[in-house]
């Protein structure tokens, strides 16, 4: 039987910290996404691809889409946030990125409590996610 004295009904400190970051990141990401979508569909910000033309692109594969619409993949959307459609990527990036911040946030806590194994695993995970986010890894047709 495992040692029962260190098992608690309450969530651990790192679990609560992770949850806190997750919650804040999600609300912020969703709020920004809704605002930017509003700006987009009501034409308050000019989109790069006019609203009426988007449907021409989404039935082809992504390679053709990028080529025909003259869009660079990866992080080049950052340079295009002046456009009503691309500004939505800010909110999307936040939602996709909040997990990375959660992991980074708990590493110091794990080190402080002496849980080096998990600190290492968490650091590895953060690296994996950052690698995915960086766009250095690509799959292509």
């Amino acid at each position: 039987m495992e040692n029962k004295t260190d098992v608690s009904l309450e969530a651990s400190e790192e679990q609560l910290l992770y949850a806190k970051f997750l919650e804040v990141g999600m609300y912020v990401g969703l709020a920004i996404l809704f605002i930017t979508y509003f700006l987009y569909i009501f034409g308050i910000m000019e989109p790069y691809i006019p609203l009426s033309e988007v449907s021409h692109y989404w039935s082809q594969n992504v390679g053709d889409y990028l080529h025909e619409a003259n869009i660079n993949a990866g992080w080049s959307w950052v340079g295009m946030v002046g456009y009503g459609d691309f500004i939505n990527f800010i909110g999307i990036a936040i939602l996709a990125g909040v997990t990375i911040f959660c992991y980074i946030a708990i590493i110091p806590l794990l080190i402080r409590t002496g849980d080096m194994v998990y600190a290492v695993i968490a650091a590895l995970e953060a690296l994996v996610l950052i690698l995915a986010a960086s766009g250095l890894i690509t799959g292509g047709h």
Partner: peptide
């Protein structure tokens, strides 16, 4: 999260749909 970034960096995300 990890898979979404790969698709996003490939351009497979269209805000009008998302």
């Amino acid at each position: 999260t990890s898979a979404a970034w790969i698709y996003m960096n490939k351009g497979c995300v269209i805000p009008l749909m998302v």
